[in-house]
Amino acid sequence: MKYPLASLLCLVLATPLGAHPHIFVDTKLEVLVDAEGRLTHLRITWAYDEFYSLLVTEDRGLDPDYDGVLTDAEIASLNGFDMQWIEGFNGDTVLLDGEEEIRLSAPKDVETDFKEGRIITSHLRAVGSTLPSADGLVVKPYDPTYYTAYEVAGKVTVTGNDTCRARVKMPDMTADLRALQADLEKLDTQTDPSEVGLPEIGEALANEVVITCESS
């Protein structure tokens, strides 16, 4: 995920954190399907961990009394803070039809809340003008570098078509993958994994949301 520079500097200077992952995000998904069983949109909700939420609010001078409560105006000032994406960034969300990636729109209908010390944001992403059948599609939320760890939290909701369902498939945690994950966690905050020969493992650790629809 791409973040404001000041917040990234806070993360780099914070010790004694391991290098990867820095940020933990509980992800909720709503799959929107039309009456013909075609996928139209994804509603994506990110609940950031308390530590990263604290860094963001401190960086922006929010919650000066440290009571863990933000005013409506303070919450409004956060809206869109995580939507400043560089060109070509996929929003750490990949939609697959077999091996083919389906492009999603830029985020819209962005909303932000703050509960129990955590920043919670949501956004809507549309499928292109040619709507694919939802049956068999796979949604994978992940950061390739594993700088941010996304975990699909709770039930995935499917809206608009009662014949469609979604299930979460957990990654296959092989011994090699566990070893790589452990090696990443040992790195200090200023070491890029690629500098020590470690590969990007974000995709291998990703949850997969598999959509299925019954034939009419």
Rank of each mutant, 00 (worst) to 15 (best):
A179W: 06
S122C: 10
R103N: 09
E58Y: 05
G61D: 02
E185Y: 06
R38L: 04
F89I: 00
R60F: 11
R125L: 02
L78R: 04
V168M: 01
C213W: 05
A166Y: 12
G61C: 05
K2Y: 14
T163A: 15
L205N: 06
L39A: 05
L13I: 01
I119A: 08
N207P: 02
V25D: 06
L137V: 05
Y52M: 06
L13R: 12
L177Q: 02
L96W: 15
G37S: 05
F81S: 03
I23C: 05
L54G: 13
S194N: 10
E50Y: 00
L39V: 02
T159D: 15
P171H: 07
E203Y: 12
G68D: 01
G197V: 10
Y150D: 07
D135S: 13
T27K: 15
E151C: 00
P16F: 04
C10M: 09
D82R: 01
C213A: 07
G117D: 06
L13F: 10
G80K: 03
V110P: 13
I201T: 06
G68Y: 10
L205V: 08
Y48V: 03
L32N: 14
A206E: 03
G37Y: 01
L104V: 07
Q190K: 11
A19W: 01
G98R: 07
L54I: 00
S194H: 11
T163F: 12
Q190V: 09
E116Y: 05
D49K: 08
G128V: 01
G128W: 00
D92K: 05
I120D: 00
V152P: 03
L198E: 10
D34N: 15
V209H: 03
F51E: 04
G18A: 06
N161Y: 01
V56I: 12
F114A: 05
P4I: 03
T157R: 08
R60E: 05
D143M: 07
A19S: 15
F81N: 06
F24N: 07
L96C: 02
A175Y: 01
P141Q: 01
V94A: 13
R60W: 05
K28M: 06
T71F: 03
K108T: 13
C164V: 02
G128I: 00
E74K: 04
V196W: 14
A204V: 00
S216Q: 10
D188N: 11
D92E: 14
D92S: 15
D65L: 04
Y3N: 09
P107T: 08
G202H: 12
A204L: 13
V110S: 04
T174A: 04
V94M: 11
V152H: 07
K186L: 10
